[in-house]
Structures are given as structure tokens and as C-alpha cells.
Computed example of a mutant assay.
Amino acid sequence: MKLLRSDESVVVPVGVTAGVAVFDRQAGQFTDLVNPDLRFRSASVVKLLLVLDFLWDRGPAYEIPAADQARLEVMLRSSDDDAASYYWDHLGGSAIIGRMVPRLGLTHTAGPPPTHPGFWGYAAFTAADTVRIYRYLLDQAPAPVRDFVMGNLHQATRYGTDGFDQYFGIASVFDSSFAIKQGWSGFPNSSGFGRDKSKPKESVVDLANEALHTTGTVGPDDRTVVAVYTLHPDGTGYGKAYSDVTRLIRALNVPGAVKTPGSWVTSTGSGVRVRSAPNTSAGVLGTLPSGVEVLVSCQKKGQLIDTPPRSSEWWAYLPKYDGYVTNVYVGSGGPKLPGVPDCQ
């Protein structure tokens, strides 16, 4: 693998195990590599292989039946697990992996352990093989396949169908020219196949610790492919893992990417609501994962919120949500965020 810089330049958050591969399609080289062939349980990233297997050999004139189109769209955009289970069952389970490995030239991808044949999220994936999947999609796949898959990944919803905020990592850092297929496994209340603390000997991947992966493309014409796989110590909260993965993405060399400007601020509390205007009468746009770092571009006066010992009439504007959250629940406790400009 041709590499622009050494992996020592990538700082992985303490306690996190990471596999990283960043490939600049325009230059034809990797710009960052960390453990690119280290295997992780795929979680929902395996859905890329499910859709490719379904569309394989269908021919350029093939029209996806309406029922399949609806299932595939929600699987790709909102990481729907019921749709993934449908295709896993109907296309032969691990045989899907067996077919796609030689088709795409994957080197370390494998099906789930024999003890868990139905657990598609336990398939073994690597960062380097994930780059190969995206490069096939972008450079070799028939145009209808490329347009369908990448078109849906460019329209990824903020929340998965299980309610989890999937805009961590790539989606948290970069401006809107990105496509994502994320993966999460082992966090409380997440759907699909979580984790197995029994650590079966047949598994080549860690099934016990929390997993959080961000993969996709960034920049004009999908210039750079980014694949980041992470494992977090047992018991890590979703907000902490979300922040660690996003912090790792912020440190990568991603050609063609434009980072959304602003200041990173830690939120407090649980279920903090993001609203369309700086008051509690405004519509709710979403909620923040507990203890997550969020990007703030400016702050604006609004409704006074008094929750002793904290009180503030200032609200932080979060560009990634296009909404506001009271300063009572972001920052270190002062009524106004230091170093953050007023909204104009």
C-alpha cells in the first residue's frame, strides 16, 4: 500500500483500538493507515455487501422491484436491521460473504463465526477491505449500481431506524459533500446483534467490547474514501465513543474535505434537545447523546433557562443539526461560551 505519511502521525484516543485507511482516489494513494488489516466485527457496514450481492449480475437494464427498493433504501440510508436480516436470510447468509470476497478481491473479510451463523453483524471486516469495497463501487461497478448505492449513502439520515444518531465521525466533521455507511454494536438499546461476552474461540474478531465504525467518502466526486473501525473498553457510553471516533476523524489527512467551522464543546446531561429556535417552544430537531462533544458555530440570546446551579439565556447554534441547545447543557458552566462568536 502506497502511503503519503506514517501512521505515527495519527493519534488514536486512549483506550480505543482502531483500524484506519484513508485513500485519495485522485492521487491514487493512501494518506493515513493504522492497522489497516486488523479485523473488527462489521456491525452494519456489512450491509454494503448485502446490497452488492443482491444487485450482482442483474444487468444494466434491471429495475429493482418496488418492495426491494424500499427495503434497500432504508437499509442504506437509515441502517435498518430488519432489511439486512431479510437479505441475509434470502441470499444465503454467509454464502454472501463467500461470493463477495473473490468478486471484490477482499483479503481479510470473513463471515460470522460458525457459532453465530445468523449474526450478519459479526462478519469480519477491515479498514483496507472497506476501501476496496468503495473503490469497486466508485470505479468498477455498473453505473446503475454505483448511482443507487452511493446515491443512498449520500442521503443517510441523521438517525438510524433504531433511534441511534449516526452522524458521528465523518458526518460530524465535514461539510455536506460526504456519503456514509456507519456501524455500531454493543451499546444499550441499539438494535441488531450487539455483543457476546462469552468470547467464542471460533471468532476471529472481538465480539465483547463496544464497536463504532465510520466509513464512506468525502469531497467532490467522492474523492477520498475513509474507513475507520474502532473498539472501546467494555462499558463505554455511546456519547464517549461517538466523541472519540469523531476526534480521530478530525486528525486524519482527508484530501478534498472541507471541515465545518466551529468550536468543539462537551455537552452535559442526558436527552438534551436540539430546537429549531433558541426557546423551548420551538420544534425539537433531535437529542444529543449523553456527554457528547458537539460542534458550535455561534451563540444567540433566547429564553432564559434556569436549572440550578446553572442558568443562561444564551443558546449554542449547532450547524450539524441546524438548531440550538441551551448553554446550560454545553460547556463548562458559564452562561456564555468563551471564544464562540454571537450569531449574526
Score class of each variant (00 low, 15 high):
L3H: 04
V12Y: 07
P13A: 10
V14N: 13
F23A: 04
A27E: 10
F30V: 00
F40G: 09
V46C: 02
K47E: 01
L50H: 01
S94T: 09
S94N: 09
S94Q: 14
S94G: 13
I97P: 02
L106Q: 12
T107L: 13
T109H: 14
D129G: 02
T130G: 04
I133G: 06
A141P: 12
V145S: 02
R146Y: 06
R146I: 02
G169N: 07
S172D: 13
F174E: 03
D175N: 12
G186L: 11
F187N: 10
S191A: 15
S191W: 04
G192R: 00
G194R: 05
G194D: 12
G219S: 08
D221V: 06
Y229A: 06
H232Q: 04
D234Q: 14
Y242E: 14
I249W: 00
I249Q: 01
R250S: 04
G262R: 00
G271D: 07
V272L: 03
V274A: 13
P278F: 10
T280M: 14
L285I: 08
T287Y: 14
G291L: 03
I305A: 15
P308E: 05
P309D: 11
W314D: 01
Y321A: 05
V325D: 11
T326H: 15
T326V: 09
V330I: 12
V330C: 14
G334T: 15
L337P: 12
L337Y: 14
C343E: 04
C343R: 10
Q344H: 08
